[in-house]
Structure formats: C-alpha cells, structure tokens
Computed example of a mutant assay.
Amino acid sequence: MLAIEYRRHGGYEELRLVERPAEPATGGRASIRLSYAEVSPADDTIRAGRMDTSLHRAPPLIPGGGVGRITDPGATGLAEGTRVVVGGGGLGWRTDGTWREQLTAEAPQLIPIPDGVGDEAACALFAGAGYSTAYLVLTRVAGLKAGHTVLAPGIGGSVGMGTVEVARELGASLVLTTASRTDKAEQARAAGHQHVIDLSRESLADGVTRISTRWPDGRRGYLDGIVTDVPARGQGHARRIVDALVGHLHTAGIHYVQLHASNAGKPVYEAAGFVPGSYPSMDLVTAPPAG
C-alpha cells in the first residue's frame, strides 16, 4: 500500500511517498480502508521536531488521524462496511497514523459516523480536535447561550477557528478573534471572519474595546426589501435610501447592519461601505392558524 511518512524531523520536504506492507486484522483489531486523512497542527509540530520527545515515537512515522470504512471488523463488534473516524490511542504520535491507504485499529480508536454526515465533514470535525474541542468547551464549560459574546484567540489555529465558527452556529451575537500578523488578519477577514484583532498593530485589550464599543449591546440592524423600479435605476435612489437607513440606525445606537444583497444590488451596498459577511440566510414560513 502507499503511505506518506517522514524519516527525520524537519519541514514539509521531509514527507515521502513510500510503499508499506498492508496490516492484517489480527489481535482483535479492525482493518480500515482510508478515505480522508486530517492534517493537524500537532502533526506539523511533531514532524518539525518541536514536540517533547517523550510524547511521541522517533521517526520514521506516518502522521494523522482520519476517516475510512471497515473492511474486516476483527473482534471490534462493528460491522463490515461501517464508516468510522479513526483516532486516539497515540495514532500519529506513538504509532503510525492515517496518511496511508489502509491501517488496523482497536475498537476504542473507532467512532462510527452517523448517516447523513459525509466522510469529509467527519474528518474536518476531528481535524486537530478544533471543532469538537470548541463545541465541548462552549457548551459544557462556558455555558454559551444565544446572544453571548465570545473571544476566541488564534484564528490561524484549529481550536481558534473552530471556536469562531461553532460559536456563530450556537447563536453568539458577537465573536472576536485574533491574528499574530497583518497578513493572517487580512486572510481571515477575506474568509468572512469579520472581527479579527491584528495583534501586530494593537493590543488585545484595545482591540476588544474598539470592537465591543462599536457594538456594545449586541443589537444589529437589518435592511430588507430595498428595490428600485427599473425606470428609476441608475439615479442614486437606492444609495440615498441605504445611507438614510444606516444613519437612522447609527443615531439609535446600532452600529452593526446586515442585509442580503442581490447580485445587481451588491455594487450599491459595497459603495456604501458594506463588506461580505459570514451569516448565511435561512427562511421559515409557517401556516397561519385556521379560521
């Protein structure tokens, strides 16, 4: 089978595509055919030689956790064909990981994937433990409720990025994050992460104060249904309406405004200072009561 391993510590150039013998499903272990393998910060740290050597095996080593399908369940009690997340038990640290076509694993290292969840999504959820860690911390430790504000430092890390995205899904009204350099901050904003504090330009305290002062109570404005009749288009009517509405909200102390723009309307809103956001739209229509 094909595998990717490194034989000495160093940069990405140390990774090698190699032939390895397939592992038989013996000793109660299941055989898994891999479909996706994660790339995590821990894998990078170990390969680069920056991890305490007492925590991992010396090279050669295959990195990673991942997702696959059981081809031989062994004595794990799982059915052949079950899709599973493969991880834990020192995988990629003390034993070879998932950057290969096939491996064997014990039952505690296998998490069945529910129907309706794709292999790619399952692998992304566990990559670097970012999203799973974020969800557990926000729900079980922090007790996040809809409308709360969340500070998730380190948008470039798996846990930082995972916390930003999970907090939004859980209804946080304001999610702030940080980047260590300007290029990272710009890249994060371009990806839709609006409230990024560039720590190379301002302190964390100053950034939090700046952003939270602009949105002190979590209220937001929403513009809906701005339509200009075809004969009246191109005369600046929509822009004047937008400016007036934004001005009214500003006077009311609301400094965060959202809208959903058509392709034709985007140039008008961009000229008024709007930027692409990260909150997708969803609709719900309920039936009126009978009678």
Rank of each mutant, 00 (worst) to 15 (best):
D243M: 11
G234L: 06
D243P: 04
A244T: 13
S203V: 00
V257D: 09
L144A: 01
D243E: 15
L136H: 05
A124G: 09
T163S: 14
A205D: 15
G225H: 07
S132V: 13
D243S: 14
Q235I: 03
A179K: 01
Q194S: 09
R189W: 08
G247D: 12
T133M: 01
A134K: 06
R233N: 02
V175G: 08
R210E: 15
R189H: 05
L144H: 01
H248F: 09
T209W: 06
V175W: 01
L174A: 05
N263M: 09
G171D: 02
A127K: 03
V242K: 05
G171I: 06
R239K: 13
H255N: 12
L125W: 10
T182V: 11
G207F: 03
L144G: 00
Y222V: 13
V175P: 11
Q235S: 08
S212Q: 12
M161S: 13
G147R: 07
D224C: 10
A121G: 06
T133K: 10
A261I: 14
R181N: 02
T209A: 15
R219T: 15
Y135K: 07
I155K: 06
T209G: 14
L174I: 09
I211N: 01
I226F: 03
D224E: 05
L144N: 00
R214D: 07
A134Y: 00
G207N: 02
A252L: 13
G247R: 11
L245G: 01
R240V: 08
S262Q: 11
G130K: 06
A238F: 09
I211P: 02
L151N: 07
A179N: 08
T177V: 13
A127T: 12
L176Q: 09
M161I: 06
I254Q: 02
V257E: 04
A244P: 04
D198Q: 05
P231K: 09
S203H: 02
Y135R: 10
G236V: 14
S200L: 03
V150E: 09
R239L: 12
Y256S: 14
L245Q: 07
K184E: 08
T182E: 10
V141Y: 03
L174P: 02
H148M: 10
G160A: 15
R233Q: 14
V159E: 14
L125E: 00
R210H: 14
A191L: 08
M161H: 13
G234Q: 10
S173Q: 04
D183N: 07
E202W: 04
A252G: 04
V227F: 15
H260W: 08
L170G: 06
A191E: 06
Y256L: 13
A190W: 09
L136V: 07
R210A: 15
A134N: 05
A179T: 04
Q235H: 13
P153E: 14
A252H: 07
A121Q: 12
I241Q: 11
R239F: 03
D206Q: 04
V141Q: 06
D217H: 15
Y222S: 12
A190Q: 11
G225K: 06
